[in-house]
Nucleic acid binder design. Structure first.
Lengths: 148, 148
DNA sequence: CTATTGTCTATTGAATTAGTAGAGTTAGAA
DNA sequence: TTCTAACTCTACTAATTCAATAGACAATAG
C-alpha cells in the first residue's frame, strides 16, 4: 500500500499540475480543494520543495508551483521520492536495495526474482505516465482473468 | 511493501510446492530451511490451512502439504489471501474495495484511476505465474527506461 | 498411553505513520 | 518601517500496525 503521505503528495502534485503556469497556488487552496489536513500538507510540501519537485514563494501572494513542466514529472519519480522505492520487497529495489530480514541468500530467493520482475513491470508503466497525462478515472474491467 | 508475514507465507508455500507429493513436511523443517521463526510460522501455516491452501496432518509423522497442485496456486491468489488485496490503495482493490480516507469523490480521483490500471497490470502478471513455475532468480535489467 | 506434531487465542514490544504544535523566516504593501 | 499573509523547520504525540512469542489444548501413530 502507498502511505497516506504518498497519496497526499501525488494529489498535491496533480493539483499543481492543473495550475501550471498560472502563478503560485496557496497551501490553503490545495488543502481545501484536495481535502488534505492543512498542517500535514505543510510538511509534505516542504519536503517536495527540498527534493526539488516544487518551488515555493514565501510572503504575501506566496504559494507553490511545480519546478518542472508536468510532462517531466512521472509517477514513478514521485513514488520513488516519497516512498523510497517502487519495489514490493526491500531486496527487489533497483535504486534503494536492502536485504530482507530472515530471508534466504538472495541468489536463491525465488520471491526476490519474482518481485524484481514485477517491479520492472510497474516501473515501466509508472515511468511512462506523467502529471501531464489525463488518466482514465475508471479503466475497463479486465475480463480475461479470474477475479477472486 | 509486502509484510514480512506475506513474504513468509509465500516462501513457505514455495517450500511445500518443492515437496509436492512427497508426504507431509514438518513445520520445523520449513522453519529451519526457510529461515522463518518457528512460532511465527505456526501462526502463518494455521492461517493457510484455514484458508484451504494447505492441508495439515496432526500427530506423529504429521506436517503440511499443499491442498492443490502447485500449478493451481497462483501468486496473485496468495497475495490476495494473505494481504487482502493486490492494489496499492484501498479504493483500487477489485475484490476488497474500501474508500480511502481524506480523498476526493472516487469518480474524480485520478490517483484511483491510475492505481486501478496498475493493479490490473500487476494482477495480470501475478495471476499468470504459479507455484509450479520456475521463476528467474535474476531477471535482466531493463535498460529501456530511466533508473533514478 | 505417550511422544510428537499441529491449533488457537491472547499478549507484548517495537516500529511506523498520521497528524499537530509552535516558534521562526520572508516578502509585499501601506 | 512595520504589519501581515504567506511558507519553514524541528520536535512531539497518539494511534495503528506489525512481528514475534506465550502457553494451554487437540489429535494421531505406534
Amino acid at each position: 500500500m502507498l502511505s497516506q503521505k504518498t497519496r497526499y503528495s501525488i494529489r498535491a502534485l496533480q493539483h499543481l499540475a492543473d495550475n501550471w503556469r498560472q502563478g503560485p497556488v496557496r497551501l490553503d487552496a490545495i488543502a481545501v480543494q484536495q481535502n488534505i489536513p492543512r498542517k500535514f500538507l505543510t510538511v509534505i510540501l516542504s519536503e517536495l520543495v527540498r527534493e526539488g519537485l516544487v518551488i515555493s514563494h514565501r510572503g504575501r501572494d506566496g504559494g507553490y508551483e511545480l519546478a518542472l513542466p508536468p510532462v517531466d514529472i512521472r509517477y514513478g519519480d514521485i513514488i520513488r521520492l516519497t516512498r523510497g522505492s517502487l519495489a514490493l520487497v526491500p531486496c527487489a529495489s533497483r535504486n534503494a536495495h536492502e536485504h530482507c530480514s530472515n530471508c534466504l541468500p538472495e541468489a536463491e530467493c525465488r520471491l526476490r526474482g519474482l518481485m524484481l520482475t514485477l517491479r520492472d513491470e510497474m516501473a515501466a508503466m509508472l515511468d511512462r505516465i506523467s502529471l501531464a497525462d489525463r488518466v482514465p478515472v475508471e479503466p475497463p474491467f479486465p475480463d480475461t482473468r479470474p477475479v477472486t
